[in-house]
Design a protein around this nucleic acid. Structure first.
Lengths: 178, 178, 178, 178
DNA sequence: CATGAATGAGCCTTCATTCAT
DNA sequence: GATGAATGAAGGCTCATTCAT
């Protein structure tokens, strides 16, 4: 088994649950059953481990977007995007937790600055391409607003409201964009 | 001058800028020009200082909402709300920074659990009252979606996109809800 | 009500329960419902408060010993002493707890040095007087041994053995010295 | 050289001299010439360091008792026990100092609760075995009383009387139990 | 690749004490 | 007599990081 990969996975889980700053490397060691030295051997330092994690989640996002068959129309792809977003949000809450977390935290934000920019410009481009097809007028602002809606939903679902009516909201969103 | 209040203000500023976890009390002391002991004298511990800060920002939110003249129609009040939201977002970025931050961070989230719940239920009630007046059908979900939009905009503006076209987005939003 | 006296009593209780070093003055203040300033006003500092407590318990010991009617014979007075020792031990465990505690703790020992010496020489004199009457040969060593027995019993009863058979031990002691 | 062991020894010495609560870990570090971190690496925290010390002194006690050749009669073993007790008391005053200290101090007592119980039940068993051989009647109470005498002597010698006539008392004790 | 002993900087917190009122 | 704001020194503990093996 690839220990490097194993560390990566365990660290992702722990960082998501407890937050990056509040997860000591010692906790990662214990959970992954490896020595402290090995983490530094593979990742150089804690910040870099976080960067590696962030990179691999970006890759995931890219893959999902690229795999989409481009046979579909713009509206169809938009609906598919909404669908996979809500699916992912339910299946892997912690994934979003971590990502929102590190972006808002000034310290981690700094560590990941370039990677965040890279990822968000990719996402923007993807969404924009869809909106360009659907509705030429004002596609930029509408793309921004669409992304804001999704992010806001994730934020509210994860951090603010209990008993968030996720499904009703999804339905409403689909109605709106159809 | 009231030193307790002074500490509160200085701490709010620093926590917003650097994040709660990454702001040592020693930094607050230095900035506020008080001894460490005094903070504990007034606030018992660091967590409690955060709670006190969160409480006072909630109070601010409540005051803003209550002060609104209720002479206006639902739609007028909604537009006013949007307006004051964008105004606040520009004027006091750090205010939002801190609030999103502590909510997403698992550790601080726990510290503030009850206060967050209290505040968000207040906000929900306020928004809901407006939407009930405008459009009876599905007002709950629409309220959720509206809050998500605003939170998402703040999130994207603060943490994700550089050169965020805040004004265009505001215009688009106003168009949409008018 | 005499607040000075009240502080003295509350402090005695708390020091006994938690130990002198581990009882912050703030705890005394809270329990006695007085301000910090008042304690320093009356006792100058924490060490001195301890000295005042120790003095007053010495006075108690002296009083008990002096009050004994001197009409009795040596052996009778010895038995009476044993009796009142065991009585006191059961009634006021904390009294012994505190006294043994401060004597063994190097720091507190230093604070009370002169007072401890004073008290123990008084006790020695009292016991010696009794043993002199009973048995002239080797009364000094026997006095020491007798005191050691009592102190050892207190020590074992308080700090070491659970279910200490205090009454059987008392009987055995009486048998021995009769 | 084993640094863990070295820390243990240095800490034992310092805790004995100054008391556990009044010996900062920084003092141990300085005396042992190690970093603070190392203590926590090996012992997890200060309380646990104390436990480790207490455990190792218990082991010492056990070893001394077990090594005694069981060829001897009860009375011979009792005299030998007295002898080694007084020897130890003179040679290693601090050993007793620390042990009595931690038992009487409520805070440390709590930390060591289970270990104290374990040790004292071992001692009781050892003494009892001897007294059972010598004198069948009332061996339990007599064992308790014997232990009390020794503990009381240690207490008085260490903490109360200056110029304690240790040798005469030893002689008297031997006379008594012979 | 892998371990874990060792470091040191920094953090939160406690607490006796002072002093103005 | 009485209060409590304010201080500052000190302590226990955490944790990223280094390095010899």
């Amino acid at each position: 088994m690839d220990k490097r990969q194993h560390i990566l996975e365990v660290a992702t889980k722990l960082f998501s649950e407890r937050g990056f700053e509040k997860t000591p490397l010692s906790a990662v060691c214990e959970a992954a059953n490896v020595s402290k030295g090995l983490i530094f051997h593979h990742f150089k330092n804690k910040n870099n481990l976080l960067r590696e994690i962030f990179k691999s989640t970006t890759e995931l996002i890219v893959q999902i977007n690229e795999s989409k068959t481009n046979q579909l129309s713009g509206k169809e792809r938009l609906l598919e995007l909404i669908d996979s977003f809500f699916l992912q949000l339910e299946v892997d809450k912690l994934f979003f937790q971590l990502n929102l977390n590190v972006i808002l935290q000034p310290t981690t934000r700094e560590i990941l600055n370039d990677l965040i920019e890279e990822r968000s410009s990719f996402i923007m481009k993807s969404v924009r391409r869809i909106f360009n097809e659907i509705d030429l007028e004002n596609s930029l602002v509408k793309s921004y607003l669409f992304i804001a809606e999704l992010d806001g939903i994730a934020l509210n679902y994860l951090g603010i409201f209990e008993d968030y009516p996720l499904h009703e909201i999804k339905e409403e969103l689909i109605k709106k964009y159809n």
